[in-house]
Amino acid sequence: MSPIQIIFPILFIILGPFVGGLMDGIDRKLSARLQGRIGPSILQPFYDVRKLMNKQVIGVNRAQYALLLSYLLLMIVTGLLFFSGSDILMSVFVLSTASIFLYFAVVETGSPYNTIASNRELVQIMAYEPAVILMCVGFYLVAGSFNVHDIMQSETIMITRMPGFFIAFLFALAVKLRKSPFDVSTGHHAHQELVQGIKTEMGARNLAIFQIAEWYESALLMGMVALFIVDRRPLSFFFGALLVLAVYLFMILLDNTAARIKYTKMLKIVWIATILFSGLNLLVLMLMR
């Protein structure tokens, strides 16, 4: 075990929410500017969560808090798996289990708006999962291993060999981060017809827990994006960070320029993109072997 496999997970636990929160803040600021508003401070998400944390637990019932807590903890476990350099496919599977706990926390309330949102959240999971699994397949084909550590040790820069997987992963990312046009289960702004989708019944401390889990998730997903570039060379970390930044800015731009589509259309678009880009890339890689 190399020291990096110990340092990274520790960094993830400590810095994960800060990175995720900061990204959230940038998102809000940039979105505001794109819409001609001044927008809140970049640190506003942290202020929000601090305030929410100090409130009581308010909910439709008691179970939601436990389920959200499970979601948060499983998300952290997933991140630890990934950043400690272990099996990427396994961490993707655990990630989907974590997402199921979020679904439980939403559907369990039995509130009408939440029930619709929870169904849509499930459709979102179904939409992005193939692309994410196929991304792992791509890494295995190029690096010969599912291990994140081995993938980083590989000679090749991953994105040069798996551009199709990367494009399909961007679609998955937009769904996973619930960015427009694929934000059918939630919306970040107050005018959404489903109130706030899955967040409808999350208040006070529950919302804070959810928010922190989302930050961890963003950090984890950006780690996956970086894996397309990062290898042994220290300089590659810099380029990896650049790629992450570019991808995230693209997501914000997408969010602000695209209109939400129906969930069935989302499913179709994302799956077709997955088959097209990942499938083609898969075919090429297999023929090259």
């Binding site: 009581q56 637990v57 308010i58 909910g59 439709v60 019932n61 008691r62 179970a63 808090y65 436990a66 389920l67 807590l69 499970s70 903890l73 499983l74 476990v77 798996l81 396994m90 655990v94 289990t97 706990f101 309330t109 039995g110 509130s111 009408p112 708006y113 939440n114 109130v195 409808t200 019944e201 208040g203």
Partner: peptide, 30 residues
């Protein structure tokens, strides 16, 4: 390790939430 965690996390979360006073409200119906 994961198997243990998947069993332990929800149980632990349940125990924590049991200690937590929850202010129960009606669900949102516009």
């Amino acid at each position: 390790a994961i198997i243990a965690l998947i069993f332990l996390i929800p149980i632990g979360a349940y125990l924590i939430s049991n200690r937590q006073a929850t202010n129960v409200k009606l669900s949102y119906m516009s």
